[in-house]
Computed example of a mutant assay.
Amino acid sequence: MPPKPRRIRVDGDELVVLTGRAYENLASHRRQAGAQGARIRALRTQLDQLSTFVDRLERTAADLPECKPMPCAACAGAECARDALLAALADRPPQTGNR
């Protein structure tokens, strides 16, 4: 465990005394944390855009005509593609809304 930094008071303010190496290490960690924050914000923006796209896709799929009573060519002999798509979209993880 590294030694605790020294603390001094100057004009009533408490200051922490660091070696040059310790200060550079601290500055490096701050830069890394800042870069990670920027990446997280970019990923959050992409996630929001993807969620909006999936919502639009779900609404569009719900507006497709049903194949019943006669299956369409895409659904002949298989599960209805529209119903399968709607089921898959309904099964996506819920949005928490936490930021």
Rank of each mutant, 00 (worst) to 15 (best):
residue 76 A to H: 11
residue 63 D to G: 03
residue 16 V to D: 03
residue 80 C to F: 08
residue 46 Q to A: 15
residue 12 G to R: 04
residue 26 L to I: 00
residue 65 P to R: 06
residue 3 P to I: 13
residue 57 L to H: 06
residue 29 H to L: 13
residue 14 E to K: 13
residue 51 S to C: 05
residue 26 L to P: 00
residue 17 V to I: 08
residue 18 L to N: 02
residue 84 A to W: 02
residue 26 L to S: 03
residue 46 Q to C: 12
residue 55 D to G: 11
residue 45 T to V: 03
residue 44 R to P: 02
residue 18 L to C: 04
residue 88 A to F: 10
residue 10 V to C: 10
residue 33 A to H: 08
residue 86 L to Q: 15
residue 81 A to K: 08
residue 4 K to A: 15
residue 71 P to V: 03
residue 84 A to L: 12
residue 93 P to L: 11
residue 54 V to I: 15
residue 12 G to E: 05
residue 52 T to W: 04
residue 96 T to N: 07
residue 94 P to K: 13
residue 31 R to E: 01
residue 30 R to W: 01
residue 70 M to T: 14
residue 2 P to Y: 10
residue 64 L to C: 08
residue 77 G to Y: 01
residue 95 Q to V: 04
residue 58 E to I: 01
residue 6 R to V: 05
residue 34 G to I: 00
residue 62 A to M: 06
residue 19 T to L: 08
residue 83 D to I: 09
residue 91 D to W: 04
residue 89 L to C: 09
residue 96 T to I: 00
residue 1 M to E: 14
residue 77 G to P: 01
residue 55 D to E: 14
residue 39 R to E: 15
residue 38 A to I: 05
residue 28 S to G: 15
residue 59 R to D: 14
residue 23 Y to F: 14
residue 32 Q to G: 03
residue 8 I to G: 02
residue 82 R to S: 07
residue 46 Q to G: 12
residue 15 L to T: 02
residue 60 T to A: 13
residue 85 L to S: 12
residue 94 P to L: 04
residue 24 E to A: 15
residue 25 N to C: 11
residue 24 E to M: 09
residue 49 Q to R: 09
residue 79 E to I: 04
residue 44 R to K: 06
residue 46 Q to E: 15
residue 79 E to W: 06
residue 81 A to C: 07
residue 96 T to A: 03
residue 44 R to T: 08
residue 23 Y to H: 14
residue 77 G to V: 01
residue 42 A to M: 08
residue 32 Q to A: 09
residue 73 A to Y: 04
residue 88 A to H: 12
residue 82 R to W: 04
residue 95 Q to D: 11
residue 63 D to N: 05
residue 71 P to L: 10
residue 70 M to F: 05
residue 51 S to W: 02
residue 59 R to T: 09
residue 74 A to G: 03
residue 32 Q to P: 00
residue 11 D to W: 10
